[in-house]
Amino acid sequence: MDISQLMTRFGARLAHLPTHTKVLLTLATCVLLIELALRHFGPRSRVYSRWTRGIEAVGAVWTAVLLSIVYVVSVGPVSLFMTLTGKDLLDRTAGRDVTSWKAHDPNPLGPLAAARHQF
């Protein structure tokens, strides 16, 4: 298969995409091209700094949206389970214990092997 055939197949595929996907792809391509152009021709320009701030603002909104979903979907159910089973991961019971010192458990891997890990 030569390059022209590949391009034709790729074009046909794009043509069959739904309209909203085409719009999103066009938008993403434009953002990428503008970013590359500004980075190449004016990395210290005021336009590029404004562009970066704008993109960062969009990124912050999307991060907030995605993290909200992650928080509700992942943290929420586990929290609910813990509440139902009466477990408190932070040991916040206000009872007057004789001591609140807990044993410092040495890592079962041994000191040197444990030091190679982040846990």
């Binding site: 909200s68 928080y71 943290v75 929420g76 929290s79 813990m82 408190d88 991961l89 932070l90």
Partner: peptide
């Protein structure tokens, strides 16, 4: 663990 224990205030 803290986020789980303090859901939803930890958002």
């Amino acid at each position: 663990s803290t986020y789980i224990a303090t859901f939803p205030r930890s958002f």
